[in-house]
Design a protein around this nucleic acid. Structure first.
Length: 200
DNA sequence: CTGGGGATCGAG
DNA sequence: TCGATCCCCAGG
């Protein structure tokens, strides 16, 4: 179980998003370990991406974690009830990140069911808000280093063959960057999120 | 100080 | 299709 090093996250953001497919998100809560295989990601390209929180170097208390170096977390709260987990990429001059959108539950499934208050395996981590609930990820885990053993980290996985590429999800459709093809997922994996804002 | 929006989810 | 729900931030 090899932990991904910060070097992994300091490459091209879209490439990082693609290479994160098949890797494992590990959440350690006391003695309890939760593991999920990453099956869906989205890249957010910083200052030039109008859908990115750090568009045009927008800098606030909320977005400042994006200005950390690659390998840190960026967790934010949205819609009054959900958290989303990102991994920061690039160096400090590139406030870019990859949103972790879905996981395939691997270990600690009974705990995930408890946190989610859902029994169906497919309901546990098939969305960015769901997986944060299943893994008990809140704002307390914002701006944390993910490249060492601790409460939250990512380990290397096996290479994935069937990758798909699509436009991103849940964004204001009047912005052209909403249509950029920066969503990566594993083809035919039942734990990939269901998109509602079907484009075209 | 205040009001409006949000990288979502789930019920109906 | 729509309502929940609340933190954060821009604007006054």
């Amino acid at each position: 179980m090899e932990i991904l090093k910060s070097r992994f996250f300091k490459k091209n953001t879209a490439l990082v998003a693609e290479k994160l497919l098949g890797c494992y998100l590990v959440r350690q809560i006391g003695n309890q370990k939760l593991i999920g295989r990453i099956v869906e990601t989205e890249a957010y390209l910083g200052v030039k991406d109008s859908c990115c929180h750090s568009f045009q170097n927008h800098f606030t208390d909320k977005t400042k974690a994006m200005y950390l170096e690659g390998g840190f977390s960026y967790v934010y709260f949205t819609y009054g009830m959900h958290y989303c987990l990102n991994v920061v990429t690039g160096d400090k001059t590139q406030p870019e990140a990859v949103l972790i959108r879905a996981l395939e539950p691997i270990e600690g499934i009974s705990k995930m069911k408890k946190y989610r208050k859902k029994q169906n395996l497919k309901d546990l981590c098939s969305g960015p808000g769901k997986l944060c609930q299943a893994f008990s990820i809140t704002k307390k885990l914002n701006a944390k280093k993910l490249t060492k053993k601790g409460e939250l980290f990512i380990t290397k996985g096996r290479a994935v063959k069937d990758k798909e590429l699509d436009s991103r999800v849940g964004l204001p459709l009047h912005k052209d960057s909403a249509y950029w093809f920066l969503r990566f997922y594993i083809k035919n994996n039942p734990h990939v999120s269901v998109r509602k804002n079907q484009i075209c």
